[in-house]
Amino acid sequence: MGGGSSRLFGTLAQTLNSAPLAQPDPYSEENPDADPVEVDPDQLLRECEEALQRRPARPHRDMVYPSGPVPHPHLHNPSIRVMQWNILAQALGEGKDGFIRCPLDALNWHERKYLILEEILTYRPDILCLQEVDHYYDTFQPIMAGLGYHGSFLAKPWSPCLDVERNNGPDGCALFYRRSRFSLRATAHLRLSAVTMPTNQVAIVQTLTCRATGRPLCVGVTHLKARSGWERLRGAQGADLLRSLRSITARGAVPLVVCGDFNAEPSEDVYQRFSSSPLRLNSAYKLLSRDGQTEPAYTTWKIRPSGESRGTLDYIWYSADALSVHSLLDIPTEDQIGPDRLPSYHYPSDHLSLLCDVGFRED
């Protein structure tokens, strides 16, 4: 299964062929989009479906409305759709992560990129926050620019992807926003520190203006240090990021959304730091629970040589005083994920995408 499409389809081929051959400096402050080839999202979604016709369908996921019925769309204050996703760096998936129940063929980039794009095109977020991006310049930047997004990328200083033979450069965080919905005020590329020592983890923070309301919105994306034994480092990285966010948002005067793979369960110090911050942040996915206080049982589920690993590591934090969550994309069940867990032929990453619709509070 899955060995199918090695050819690029029309819309995607045209867009990717327009990308520059030379990769820009991944550590530069900004790489503005230039003359993107316009892409029809419906046509590209059809091409993704055609490329993936030999694979099983992605898990079906419903939108959940925690506050009751579907809110009536407000012309002057429409919802903002935010997607958070660790998409799994190609070099790590094939060369380092050891997903022993995932056939190597399921990870081939020729088809896996269509699974990733299909997920994005199905939900069409206004803001897209990604981690473990190692195909930014040759895939995501030109495609997302053609779909009407502005993109920003920041690589890890010492990406583990570079240790893999035939890698595609360093992985990092990427932040995209829809140009028709937002204009850019400012961008901050941050290298996170632990006390005073710089670390290998980064964050992008952008201050935007919502064109519909004229109101500012600050958006951040990050990916904290992985694995057990590094809890104190993650706590220090989170504290450093929160300090920067307080400064950038003028101590919370600008509403804030922070997305990321925190590599931390809710019991960890870094989670507690975010939930008790003076910025008054709440975690959107707690709203899926009956009490509104409990995170999902998992946002990642994988099997490695060390055993099965299931946990909640990914979050969308938002300013609870200034923003409200209208709806969220539910979490697939164990049966939908399947006995071999993630990634798989029907899902491209070991992390699930998170998605919510938020709106500015009228008061």
Rank of each mutant, 00 (worst) to 15 (best):
G2C: 12
G3K: 09
S5I: 10
L8R: 15
L12T: 07
L12E: 12
N17G: 13
A22K: 13
P24A: 06
S28K: 09
E29C: 02
P32W: 01
D35A: 11
D40E: 11
P41D: 08
Q43L: 13
E47W: 02
E50L: 15
R55Y: 11
P56N: 05
D62A: 13
P66M: 09
P66D: 08
N86R: 02
I100K: 08
P103C: 04
D105W: 00
W109A: 11
R112L: 05
L115F: 00
I116R: 01
T122W: 00
I127R: 05
L128Q: 06
L128W: 09
L130T: 06
D138H: 12
T139C: 15
Q141P: 00
G146E: 08
G148A: 07
G151H: 07
L154H: 11
K156R: 14
W158D: 12
C161F: 07
L162Y: 01
V164D: 03
G172M: 10
R178D: 12
A188T: 13
H189N: 12
V202R: 10
I204N: 09
Q206F: 02
Q206N: 11
T207I: 14
A212N: 13
T213S: 15
P216Y: 04
L217V: 10
G220K: 02
K225I: 11
A226G: 00
R234G: 04
A236Q: 14
Q237L: 09
Q237W: 01
L242H: 04
R243D: 10
R243T: 11
I248G: 01
L256G: 04
V258N: 02
D261Y: 02
F262V: 00
E265A: 14
E268C: 00
S275R: 13
S277W: 06
P278G: 07
R280C: 15
S289M: 09
T294Y: 04
E295V: 00
E295Q: 03
T300S: 15
T300R: 15
W301L: 13
S306G: 12
R310C: 12
L313E: 01
I316V: 14
D321R: 14
D321C: 07
A322Y: 04
L323C: 11
V325E: 11
L328H: 06
I331D: 04
T333I: 04
D335K: 13
I337E: 04
G338Q: 04
D340N: 15
H351Q: 10
H351K: 06
L354W: 02
